[in-house]
Design a protein around this nucleic acid. Structure first.
Lengths: 152, 152
DNA sequence: GTAACTGCAAACGCTTTGCACCAAG
DNA sequence: CTTGGTGCAAAGCGTTTGCAGTTAC
């Protein structure tokens, strides 16, 4: 899905779920919808403040909470701490993340549902959710200086 | 591996890596080595304080850091926040966690390495690490009151 | 007009650090 | 004896909350 279409889609869902569209929220939505990398609340704040100079960090947190509830973004857990967010591909949570630049790629991995089924039988667990994440270095970062961070 | 053997194993590695064995550290090691559930630093602190009454929370953090570096425990990321720790099965990071009681089960999932290989070809990523985690309700918790927490 | 939303500042909780004392080896 | 480890207290940091003013609808 192209970024512009995604933003329209988000605005649609956002408004029809009863949320008011304000400059602060629009700025956050634009930043997150147009990014294909994992972003921290602070990164989102800094980027969104260019579009809405009076923006406060608090509004970023509150908007992210709404977006997470609407399933428009998903939380990404990283080796160190964990408050990264990325726009959520429909239904999938299988991510490939570059530890150098933060770029993220969704991929298909339907064999996971088979695995879930066998776990259910084997251990008697009722499976609610799963999480598959790969970390590595993307092609671009491999060809550059490995210690050159390229966060957007 | 039985818990007692694991503790011995840990003490072995711990000491031969140059770390001194103190009452505080022993208490933390005993608690974590003998548990098969995901534990937060605070839970570990409370349990370990029974064995070493003068224990400080700070020592728990410091000991966990050492254990993580020695790969004896692994960090578990949970939907909400993420500072859970569990003793690490050798080489495997595939976990099945009960969201009710915290019990964790390691399982085999070697198909993940195949998947990693295909991702490498498809997207050009150099894969460094992966993470597969299932969340659900274990058999015991299914048969009990679902809202009855049973944290150890 | 009104309820939802805002930014600010302060509170909060978890984690880390500085330090003087202590004990493992 | 020496160096690494301890607990305490305080600092640090990211996140959340209370609030009075503001704005989308």
């Amino acid at each position: 899905m192209p970024s512009s279409t995604r933003l329209d889609h988000w605005l649609d869902i956002f408004q029809s779920s009863g949320c008011r569209l304000t400059p602060a929220r629009l700025a956050v939505l634009e930043v997150v919808a147009n990014s294909s990398t994992v972003l921290s609340p602070m990164q989102i704040f800094l980027a969104a403040r260019n579009r809405a100079p009076r923006l406060g960090l608090v509004s970023v947190y509150r908007t992210l909470e709404i977006l997470e509830n609407l399933k428009l973004i998903q939380r990404v857990h990283q080796p160190d701490g964990c408050q990264g967010f990325i726009n959520a591909a429909s239904g999938h949570q299988h991510l490939l993340i570059c530890v150098n630049c933060g770029r993220a790629v969704y991929f298909e991995g339907d064999d996971v549902t088979e695995l879930a089924e066998s776990l259910k039988e084997k251990f008697g667990f009722h499976i609610l959710d799963h999480w598959l994440q790969f970390e590595g270095i993307c092609r671009d970062c491999q060809s550059k200086n490995p210690s050159d961070p390229e966060k957007p």
